[in-house]
């Protein structure tokens, strides 16, 4: 305790403060470090879609349409559900825990701009989402000979559907995190929502085999459109005739996902809480 203390002064130069990009990247690195060090979340998030597709491939080994194997169909649902897990479920469960532990309160007491917290989450979600999807596709190619998209246009579609989808799910995950009153209730809020959407959006069943009222309800939410957009990437163009609308409706996919980005953003801005209710 013999360190000499520099006197606190009123005049401060702001030159040492990192710029916005550096702040966001530092926060993203911190979030990723924390994520990678909690082994359960890594195993669950990365492993779940892979285990699911392996189970599906083992159970259904026929063809859904000429030249389209069941795994080729279900990989689209697994990719979409995987993206939803790393964004929507991950944030909907973790942010209430961080809020409860006072992480958010701690950040609010520093000069850190509010948006940096969200930027850190987005960076973490994107990196984990890309890694998880790449692993899922690699395993699928190796194990049951998944056919990769053959044209640049399809890869492009893959890109924008994923980006729009993960953005919408991230924003909705941040928004829904404010519904949980305590650290424990985050997963109770998020898990049923995610499961119901997965069952009704064509992740676990062939979408067109669901009752039509269920299809219509699912069409209100982003997951169904993410699956549909990804089907256009992984299934042949001839399969488009089997879609509910008679085509992959990529324009509508973009529109609905973009709309959910806007809705999610508005919900975040309007409802996000930095402290728990008992903190006032």
């Amino acid at each position: 305790m013999t360190t000499t203390l520099k006197p606190a002064t009123a005049a401060r130069e702001a030159s040492h403060q990192p710029g916005p990009l550096a702040l966001a990247l530092r926060q993203g690195r911190l979030e990723l470090t924390q994520f990678l060090r909690s082994r359960e979340s890594v195993v669950f998030t990365m492993g779940f879609p892979i285990i699911m597709i392996l189970i599906f491939a083992a159970v259904f080994d026929g063809e859904i349409a000429p030249g389209v194997s069941f795994p080729q169909y279900f990989i689209t649902g697994m990719i979409a559900a995987g993206l939803m897990t790393v964004s929507f479920q991950n944030l909907g469960i973790w942010i209430p825990i961080e809020r409860d532990r006072g992480v958010l309160k701690r950040y609010r007491g520093t000069p850190m701009p509010k948006w940096v917290y969200f930027a850190g989450k987005v960076i973490m979600v994107v990196v984990v989402g890309i890694t998880e999807t790449a692993l899922l596709i690699a395993v699928s190619v190796a194990v049951f000979d998944l056919q990769l998209p053959g044209t640049a246009a399809k890869w492009l579609t893959f890109g924008w559907v994923s980006v729009l989808g993960i953005t919408a799910c991230t924003l909705c995950g941040i928004a829904i995190s404010s519904l949980a009153r305590t650290a424990r209730s985050g997963s109770a809020v998020v898990t049923p929502v995610a499961l119901i959407l997965q069952f009704t959006s064509g992740v676990f069943f062939v979408f067109t085999q669901l009752p039509s009222w269920m299809q219509q309800v699912a069409a209100l939410f982003p997951l169904k459109w993410m699956c549909q957009g990804l089907r256009s990437v992984f299934l042949p163009d001839t399969f488009a005739g089997q879609e509910p609308g008679g085509s992959y409706e990529l324009g509508r996919v973009a529109l609905v996902l973009a709309a959910w980005c806007v809705i999610g953003l508005l919900l975040c801005l309007g409802t996000f809480r930095w402290t728990t209710r008992r903190d006032g």
Partner: peptide, 9 residues
């Protein structure tokens, strides 16, 4: 990490 939030940490 927290030092990075301040102008004059």
């Amino acid at each position: 990490h927290f030092a990075g939030f301040y102008a004059d940490a």
